[in-house]
């Protein structure tokens, strides 16, 4: 390390940050590729099918084949589309999904940027993801795309409020916006994690996370049967692939945030000997994997929500539930029972 430091001199912080970014984005991209594979396999087995099994051993090379196929395809820009914004939209969708990872801690010391207002940064960055969707719908100059983007934008903006309130509960319990402090506030076994004292918020966050990423059963943004594929109907080839990548990267991000905020981050399931031996990083990955599995499970299980019911759930159920629980948490913190919410 010191040798490298002397080699790069003043550029060392820059080189170190770039290396950190590569070390996060590269595994994330591989994770996205194999999440699509896992999705097809898991949903396949849930529906008593086999799923992809032709390319490579048990179909393990299928995501690579899909990526190569999308790379070779032509990017068609519709006539009448706004060329600059049409190309910019996928970039605006994936950039926030990747940028939010800068403050995600993987262990008590392993984090790219230990920002004090980390939770606020996450909320700000993820709230920008909607621009890609809105611009894609508008720039495509197509009715289907426009309708899809309107639906999606309204849905994302509505559920962001409930998600934000759920996170306010977390920061009240942890007394901090720093993600490392939030995980340290949940040190101990499963009964010490925030999902228990903040259970309503945990449920709201989990469900709103599904709605936020436009996944089934909240995927009216792409509703194949009504508006073909929603906002990205005019996109093809790599431009479409970038939207696809962003959706799955967002899923992994929401799962990681759920694991950190409510499921104790890198803390072992039980603070006992055989569980303690497993390193914290592995626990974090297991928790992220568990939440991702829930995402896929939902998709295989529930039929699509009706649009007005989605809006009702967001505004009339989730926001009041989180507001009430904020009051409960705030009141409990003033009593001798404050240890219940830490």
């Amino acid at each position: 390390m010191t040798y490298l430091q002397t080699m790069f001199g003043v550029y060392w912080p820059l080189v170190f940050s770039l290396a950190g970014i590569v070390a996060i984005v590269l595994p994330l991209m591989i994770g996205v590729a194999y999440l699509t594979y896992a999705e097809r396999k898991i949903i396949g087995y849930m529906q008593v099918r086999i799923g992809p099994n032709r390319v490579g051993f048990k179909g393990l090379l299928q995501p690579i084949a899909d990526a190569v196929k999308l790379l070779m395809k032509e990017i068609v820009i519709p006539s009448g589309a706004n060329k600059f914004l049409f190309v910019l939209a996928p970039v605006l969708t994936i950039a926030p999904a990747l940028a939010a990872w800068a403050v995600i801690p993987f262990s008590p010391r392993l984090v790219l940027a230990n920002v004090d207002a980390g939770l606020l940064y996450i909320m700000a960055i993820t709230s920008m993801g909607v621009y890609g969707v809105v611009i894609a719908g508008w720039a495509s100059n197509s009715k289907y795309a426009f309708l899809g983007s309107l639906r999606s934008a309204a849905q994302i903006v509505s559920y962001e409020i409930a998600m934000g309130f759920a996170l306010v509960g977390v920061l009240m319990a942890a007394h901090s916006l720093n993600l490392i402090d939030i995980v340290n506030g949940q040190n101990g076994g499963i009964l010490h994690w925030y999902w228990l004292p903040l259970f309503p918020m945990f449920m709201v966050y989990l469900i709103a996370g599904v709605a936020e990423t436009n996944r089934a059963p909240f995927d009216v943004a792409e509703g194949e049967s009504e508006i073909v594929a929603g906002f990205h109907v005019e996109y093809s080839g790599m431009a479409f692939a970038v939207f696809f990548l962003a959706e799955y990267a967002n899923m992994i991000l929401i799962s990681a945030l759920t694991a950190i905020m409510f499921l104790g981050g890198w803390n072992p399931l039980f603070d006992m000997v055989p569980f303690n031996w497993i390193p914290g990083f592995v626990w974090l990955m297991l928790k992220i994997g568990f939440v991702l599995f829930l995402f896929l499970w939902f998709r295989a299980t529930f039929p699509r929500y009706r649009y007005d019911q989605i809006m009702r759930l967001g505004w009339k159920v989730f926001i009041p539930v989180t507001l009430v629980w904020l009051l409960v948490v705030g009141a409990v913190m003033q009593t001798p029972l404050a240890f219940l919410v830490h």
Binding site: A117, M123, A124, I125, S127, M128, V130, V157, E160
Partner: peptide, 10 residues
């Protein structure tokens, strides 16, 4: 960050 959250994000 609040500026981005409130004005850009909402």
């Amino acid at each position: 960050i609040s500026l981005v959250l409130v004005y850009v994000g909402a």
